[in-house]
Design a protein around this nucleic acid. Sequence first.
DNA 1: CCAACTATTACGATGCGTGACCGTCT
DNA 2: TAGACGGTCACGCATCGTAATAGTTG
Lengths: 136, 136
Amino acid sequence: MAQETFHIGDVASRTGLSLRTVRYYESVGLVAPSGRTEGGFRLYTEPDVRRLLLVRSLKPADFPLEDLQALLETHDRLLEEPDPDVRRALEGRLAGFLGLARERLRLQRERLVASELALEVLEGALARSTPAEKAP
Amino acid sequence: MAQETFHIGDVASRTGLSLRTVRYYESVGLVAPSGRTEGGFRLYTEPDVRRLLLVRSLKPADFPLEDLQALLETHDRLLEEPDPDVRRALEGRLAGFLGLARERLRLQRERLVASELALEVLEGALARSTPAEKAP
DNA sequence: CCAACTATTACGATGCGTGACCGTCT
DNA sequence: TAGACGGTCACGCATCGTAATAGTTG
């Protein structure tokens, strides 16, 4: 059965990534389209798109693309690895990644909270500045 | 009364910025030390440090340094502007900035939440993968 | 006086893209 | 035919690395 495929434009709008970025991700070996038309147009399958979505959703963890690549590769290999021993190794690797990701997200959230706090302080100062010119 | 001042190293460790970055910020006109020693060492006052901390805390909003510079400038001018009309203009500007910042932070938070969700999904999948090799 | 710190300049590299050009494909 | 797409090269931002070389500070 022939799979449904998508051109890069569809993929870009589905993922919220720019065309440029999608191509860029391919150029660094992160997500490549499963095929091409005779004329050279990229053809993405549904799994390809899912990979991109995963990358995008994990971006806030602020991994270098190289790490994301490793993550995707591990994940993919896990999908077709029969040997239980190898599977366990891959799972360990994956778990390591996820732990790291979790930590990074925690850090990001901390920073975000700090930033929101700073913003509130500024807003408070501004509010106090406007109405009462000569408040004590 | 002579203010307490700090050398760049102290400032860097207090702000968590690198020496390199602190100097860089000066080079782009973002935060300059209030003084120098006779020998040329940068001397930062407490307000200088606060500026740097502000910049740092606002970083998650992902403004270009240029915008942060404009923000700081507006803020500073507001501190010593007597004319009420000018003040109102500055306050408007500042409010615009803060609104934008707020928007951006909201966006970041959305992404962060999405990311955390994706992470949970992955962790769930991993957990299901390990214990039961041949689950239906 | 010495160890630790700092200055300037400079050239480069990195990560993650974006832009611009111009030709080709659907 | 318009518009999406292709490839390629270059540029941009915010740093970081590092080195040379020298002067300052406590």
